[in-house]
């Protein structure tokens, strides 16, 4: 693989983000495209976390008061 130093760094970040060795074929991408891919994955994860936080906050409001404490305990480990 003849990747530039920038690509090598981005590939290493992708490896960390994916938690696995990225497919070999990714070496065909330019530095910019690799960076775009990494940013897109990070953005998607951030969006997912935000959606999850908001869903939990909103969901808790409709849980019956009597059960809300127990549910919060499971969700936030006693928080």
């Amino acid at each position: 693989m003849n990747a530039s130093t920038a690509s090598q760094e981005t590939l290493a970040a992708l490896r960390a983000e994916l938690g696995a060795e990225p497919p070999e074929g990714l070496s065909a991408l330019s530095d910019d495209a690799l960076r775009h891919l990494l940013d897109s994955i990070r953005a998607q994860k951030a969006q997912q976390r935000a959606a999850l936080d908001s869903a939990i906050t909103q969901g808790l409001t409709v849980v019956p008061t009597l059960l809300r404490g127990a549910v919060r305990k499971i969700l936030f480990k006693g928080g």
Partner: peptide, 8 residues
Amino acid sequence: QISDSLFD
């Protein structure tokens, strides 16, 4: 891989 990592 992305699908798995989003899930994880």
